[in-house]
Design a protein around this nucleic acid. Structure first.
Lengths: 230, 230
DNA sequence: CGCCGTGTTGAGTAGACTCAACCCCAGTGG
DNA sequence: CCACTGGGGTTGAGTCTACTCAACACGGCG
């Protein structure tokens, strides 16, 4: 069912991630109803059940993508399930960079959940984890200064990213604008805070979107407490 | 298994709330392992699986209750399940006012979930709803001014409260200090914002904790968009 | 080359924070 | 009966910082 390009990401999904723990029959059911979807930057995800394969998806809250808040981030292997919620048309999902997801029809996915207890357990666990992450994000938004939030965010993203050997260098998975809205500040403020961290030597920028953590300890000190790991 | 006082809340749980949809056998399983716990204000909940019966519980993030952020609120009939999460000792649950919960041993509850598909579905639905609510809260924290957040919060709490016929009068389910930390502002700022709403005539205070919504439309205008209902 | 999307820099303002004092009320004990 | 106490809440003055708005820098692309 998959072309060769997509196969790589799906194969990783089935071997490296928590999903691999599921029984074989369950995985086959999932793969038989799922379809790999390529999403360009800013492309919305139609339908609301999917697993991220590559890239980062953002949950938006608001009428337009242009003025909506970024409320949550979904990294590879994260489950996206926004089905069966009060829908006032203000919940949107979009790719923050070009991304790839394994999408499911809601009915089929939920049928699989009913059929396979192990899948139900996996979904529950992931949802609890998402609640936990969101509460942590709330704690950062209510209790920390922009510097704190930025530092914690950078450490977190670095952990989620494949550092491909190159020390702590990684690609920021979204634009400044989206980062700012996720972190609850203005793009200008974000730019200044990043500059501040560069000036202190904690990080450095190879390009606007490629970042190197020069001094992780210093960054963690700024962040206060580290955020959850992958 | 219940004394007469507790029976009232449990009976409402089994008739009025979404939990009543569960099959009889499942309810009996739940009741057989659950125990009603009375919590004084600020009393922490030991163990992390419960259903709120009365009052409001708060999820805290931080070392102490005194300086922790209030990240989420649990109203009657909400499910609390913080089990099986990365536990760094900074997640706490406490009653914001005297409260009553139906508490479960984690193992027993999860056994019941495995046994009853309907319960698994109910739990999943509630967790998704909690994620949704948390995302909405994040959107408010990142995108709205303190006035907006306060107005939206008051409308929301009013909907969650039993208005006992008395127009839109209701009891605030927590102290100013906790409210402020949930809404991401300082107690002083909160006090001033409340005063501001009183001055415009949108609300009035009968006592520090008893509030009347005089002009719901005006309040909604300030809030921008209404928050999710009960 | 000019345009557009993206990111940065600068100056001024507005609004939340900090810290301190004060008010109010319920308990408590003389 | 009244003074004392402590928790909860409000008010005031001053500071600081994030926001606003505007201009500018940079790179890719038609």
């Amino acid at each position: 069912m998959f072309g060769s390009v997509e196969e790589i990401a799906v194969r990783r999904l089935l071997s490296d991630s928590g999903w691999a723990r599921l029984p074989q029959a369950c995985l086959e059911d999932l793969l038989s109803i799922g379809s790999v979807v390529q999403l360009a930057q800013d492309a919305p995800l139609q339908g609301h059940v999917a697993i991220v394969l590559q890239g980062v998806m953002g949950a938006f809250r608001g009428r337009d993508l242009s003025d909506a808040a970024v409320t949550a981030l979904y990294f590879p292997f994260d489950l996206i399930d926004l089905e069966e919620l009060p829908n006032d048309g203000e919940d949107l999902l979009a790719a923050l960079r070009p991304a790839q997801v394994l999408q499911f029809p809601a009915s089929g996915f939920h049928a699989a959940v009913r059929k396979h207890p192990a899948l139900a357990h996996e979904v529950t666990t992931r949802l609890k984890r998402q609640c936990h992450d969101l509460r942590e994000h709330v704690a950062e938004l209510t209790g920390k200064t922009p510097e704190h939030r930025l530092a914690a965010f950078l450490v977190w993203v670095a952990e989620m990213s494949v550092t491909d050997g190159d020390r702590m260098s990684f690609e920021l998975p979204m634009r400044r604008y989206d980062m700012a809205r996720y972190l609850g500040m203005q793009p200008e403020t974000l730019s200044r805070k990043i500059k501040g961290l560069v000036d202190t030597g904690a990080i450095s920028l190879r390009s606007p979107s490629r970042l190197v953590i020069e001094d992780r300890t210093a960054l963690l000190t700024v962040a206060g407490t580290a955020r959850r790991a992958a």
